Computed example of a mutant assay.
Amino acid sequence: MKPVLRHIANLWTLMGHPSQQDEWSLGKKIAEIKAAGFDGVCWAPSAELHEECLRQELIFVGGMASGDARAFPDILEDLKRFGAQHVNVQLAHDSLASEEALRLTLMLMDLARPLGLLPAIETHRGTCTETPEKMYALADAYERETGELLPLSCDFSHFAVVKHLVPSNFVEQLLIRPNLIQNAQQFHLRPFNGHHVQVPVTDGSGQLTQEVCAWLPFAEATLSCWLDGNRDKGREIFVCPELGPVEGGYALSTFPNSWEEAKVLRGEIDRIWRRLLQG
C-alpha cells in the first residue's frame, strides 16, 4: 500500500487574516482551508472547531502546549472529545532536566494510549526539545525505557537556527537520525535558513524567493528519507506548511500574507511528494 500525504493547515497561519479589523470567522477560515486543498487543520481543541471540521470533512490534528502533568488528563480528554487522534505536543520549557522530560513524556504517552490518541513531541524552541542535544537525549532515554522510538513532530527550523546552518549542510546536520524521521508522522515544513526560523516563500509577485529555493531541496530530502522507511507500509504523513503571521512573531512586516504563502508552499510540497512517489 502506498503512503498518503495529508496537507494540514495551522489556524495560526490565519491569525488576523485578512486584517486585524476584518478577521475571518472560524467558519470562514475552515471553509477556505478546505477550498485550498488542505486535508485538515491543527489547533487546540474546541467544540466550535470540531463542528466546523466535521462540516467540512477535515482531519483535526490536535495541539497542546503544557508541562503540567496534572493538566494532562483534562487536555487529552478534550482532544479526544473534539475529534483528534494525532496530537502535536509542545512539551514543558527549555530549562527542564532530561530526567523530568522523560518522566513527563512517559506519563503523557501512558495517559494517551487508552484514549487512542497519538501524541508526538514537537522539536520546538522554548520547550524541552529546544536543541538537537536535548531532543536526542530524550529520544534515546525514551527508547531505553520503552524499547520504542519516540514519536516526534519534526520542525527542523529551530535546530537550523540554533546551529546557524547553511543550506549546503541542512541534510548533513538535520537528517542524521533516519529512524526517528521515518517513525514520525507529523512534519512542520516551514522554510528557514540558519538565521531565520521563517523565510518568505514568494517575493510578492508570485515568484519563489531565493531563500525558499535554497530550502526546497531539504524538504525533498526529508520526504525522501521518510519514504525510504515507509514506501510500502500505507502510513499517513501529516505535513503542515507552518507559516506564522507577523502577529505571531515569525513573519516580518515586509513578508507577503502568511495564508497566501501557505497555499503556495502546499503546492510546492505536493509536487515534491508526487515526484518522489513516482521515483
Rank of each mutant, 00 (worst) to 15 (best):
M1I: 04
R6V: 07
I8E: 04
A9S: 15
N10K: 13
L11R: 03
M15D: 04
H17Q: 11
S19V: 05
S19W: 10
W24A: 01
W24F: 02
W24R: 02
W24I: 01
K29I: 07
I30T: 08
I30D: 00
A31P: 09
A31L: 14
K34D: 08
A35V: 07
A35N: 10
F38T: 03
F38Q: 12
D39H: 07
C42I: 13
S46V: 00
E48T: 03
H50M: 06
E52A: 05
E52S: 04
G63C: 03
M64Y: 00
S66M: 11
P73E: 11
I75P: 00
D78S: 14
D78Q: 13
K80H: 10
H86M: 06
H86F: 06
V89D: 02
Q90F: 02
L91S: 02
L96A: 00
E99K: 05
L102I: 04
L104P: 00
L104M: 09
L106N: 08
M107N: 11
M109K: 05
L115V: 00
L117D: 13
L118A: 13
I121W: 03
I121H: 04
T123N: 03
G126L: 01
T127H: 06
C128P: 06
C128R: 07
T129V: 04
K134G: 02
K134P: 05
K134N: 08
Y136W: 14
Y142E: 05
R144S: 10
R144M: 12
L149K: 09
L150G: 04
L150Y: 07
P151K: 11
P151H: 11
L152P: 09
S153N: 15
F156Y: 14
H158P: 03
A160S: 15
V162H: 05
K163H: 08
L165I: 03
L165P: 04
L165Y: 06
L165W: 05
Q173V: 00
L174R: 12
L175F: 12
P178K: 13
L180N: 14
I181M: 08
F187S: 07
F187G: 01
L189Q: 15
R190T: 09
P191W: 08
N193V: 07
H195E: 08
V199G: 06
V199F: 10
P200H: 10
T202W: 08
G206R: 12
L208C: 11
E211W: 13
W215S: 02
L216D: 14
A221H: 15
A221W: 14
S224T: 12
W226V: 01
L227T: 08
G229M: 12
N230L: 05
N230K: 05
D232R: 03
K233C: 07
P241W: 15
E247P: 01
G248F: 01
G249R: 10
G249L: 05
G249W: 01
Y250Q: 05
A251N: 02
T254G: 07
F255M: 10
N257P: 01
V264Q: 15
L265I: 06
G267A: 12
E268P: 03
I269Q: 11
W273M: 09
W273F: 04
W273G: 05
W273P: 09
R275I: 11
